[in-house]
């Protein structure tokens, strides 16, 4: 499994999140985008009109490209949302 973390995360802060049903490493305080990027997941959704693969671009909440579904609700900016224990994230990697 891909792990792009620079340092091992703080074990006291480790939590469980699920991406498309599979458990993914995550640590309290980081954004959903950080967790997804660390796991090598770049393709997050399909563009509105041309239905082409998209992922994060600006990383700071202004481009709205990194939208993911969280706990059944679509449209969350992964770069602006903090991970939470047992969070269920759906991305379109197809």
């Amino acid at each position: 499994m891909t792990d792009l973390r620079i340092r091992p995360g703080d074990p006291d802060k480790k939590i469980r999140i699920y991406v498309n049903g599979q458990e993914c490493p995550a640590f309290q305080g980081e954004t959903v985008l950080a967790a997804l990027t660390a796991a090598g997941k770049k393709s997050l959704r399909k563009s509105r009109q041309a239905k082409e693969p998209r992922g994060a671009l600006c990383g700071m909440g202004v481009c709205y490209e990194c939208l993911v579904a969280i706990d059944g609700v679509p449209g969350w900016r992964a770069c602006q949302t903090e991970v939470r224990d047992l969070m269920e994230i759906e991305i379109d990697e197809s």
């Binding site: 792009l4 973390r5 620079i6 340092r7 995360g9 980081e30 954004t31 985008l33 950080a34 990027t37 660390a38 770049k42 393709s43 997050l44 693969p53 998209r54 992922g55 994060a56 671009l57 600006c58 990383g59 700071m60 770069c79």
Partner: peptide, 18 residues
């Protein structure tokens, strides 16, 4: 996917250690 901004790179590296 895979093309990001330099700002996004900096945030991932410095703020999240990724």
């Amino acid at each position: 996917p895979g093309v990001i901004s330099t700002g996004a790179a900096q945030i991932l590296i410095k703020a999240h250690g990724v």
